[in-house]
Computed example of a mutant assay.
Amino acid sequence: MGEELKLLGAWGSPFSRRVEIALKIKGVEYEYSEEEDILHSKSALLLKYNPVHKKVPVLVHNGKPIAESLVILEYIDETWKDNPIMPRDPHERALARFWAKFFDEKCLPALWKYCWSFGDEQEKAYEDACGVLKTLEGELKDKKFFGGNNLGFVDIAANFLGFWMGVIQEAGGFDILNPDRFPRLCRWAEGFQSCPVVKENLPPRDRLYAFFKAHFEKISRSKDAEVASRH
């Protein structure tokens, strides 16, 4: 059937990349539209198709927009049945939704706060981040992927942990996700990145590193200026 499929995304967004990975797994052709400067301006197309959140990604299927990456992933899986990313068993499907939601609502905010806080606040954030990572480590057990032997919904949802976190750690000069502390998660991250469909749909590591490095340096200069102004 003749279908029009368009994805509005941003090159460095893990949320956009989730959708791209899912579409590639399904073998679905789509047109990609890059939001050039998502942090400072929104295109007319984005405001038209996602007036509520004004964020990427947005998948536009035959003129009908779907927003929010986890919602889009489920829509993709329900629309194109081949190569499923969600379990077919209702209980396992519910568990997959639970862990994807846990990642977005608990893990991601905790990691993000740790990465961008300082001093006592970062120490507290470190404990919180370790707590959620320990929970994920326990859920992963000795499985290759969260859903078992094949890349699935939860793995795609956890792509920030599978790739972005390592780049941010390197750019910021800190260390929380390492094999000594979280061997299962680190093994999973290696397996995640080595999947051809994932590898082909990750942002260039050097470009992402430069992006975060610049942000850390900007924050550092701001902190130095703040300290200097007190003396």
Results as ranks from 00 to 15, higher is better:
194 S>R: 13
23 L>M: 03
167 V>G: 01
16 S>E: 02
165 M>T: 12
30 Y>K: 00
5 L>W: 02
106 K>A: 10
85 I>F: 09
200 E>P: 10
122 Q>T: 05
190 E>D: 14
190 E>L: 12
15 F>N: 05
100 A>C: 01
139 E>L: 01
182 F>Q: 09
115 C>Y: 10
116 W>G: 04
138 G>N: 14
111 L>H: 08
155 D>N: 09
176 I>T: 04
3 E>I: 05
14 P>H: 01
1 M>C: 11
121 E>K: 01
213 K>S: 11
44 A>E: 15
65 P>Y: 04
197 V>C: 10
113 K>H: 14
55 K>Q: 15
127 E>W: 01
231 H>L: 13
4 E>P: 03
61 H>L: 04
98 F>G: 04
217 E>P: 06
105 E>I: 03
133 L>P: 12
24 K>W: 04
4 E>W: 09
74 E>I: 02
143 K>C: 09
77 D>Q: 07
184 R>P: 01
5 L>R: 02
159 N>R: 00
19 V>T: 05
44 A>R: 05
218 K>M: 12
216 F>K: 00
144 K>C: 09
43 S>L: 03
94 A>V: 08
142 D>W: 09
19 V>S: 00
130 C>I: 10
3 E>K: 03
161 L>G: 13
132 V>M: 00
48 K>P: 13
221 R>M: 14
157 A>F: 02
157 A>Q: 00
119 G>H: 12
197 V>A: 01
4 E>G: 11
10 A>S: 13
36 E>Y: 04
95 L>Y: 07
206 D>I: 12
230 R>Q: 14
55 K>M: 09
158 A>W: 10
168 I>L: 03
200 E>K: 15
231 H>N: 14
28 V>Q: 02
22 A>P: 06
37 D>G: 02
5 L>H: 05
14 P>T: 08
189 A>N: 04
4 E>C: 08
205 R>F: 07
56 V>M: 03
15 F>V: 08
185 L>S: 05
98 F>D: 00
54 K>N: 05
49 Y>G: 04
109 P>N: 06
75 Y>H: 00
101 K>I: 08
92 E>T: 11
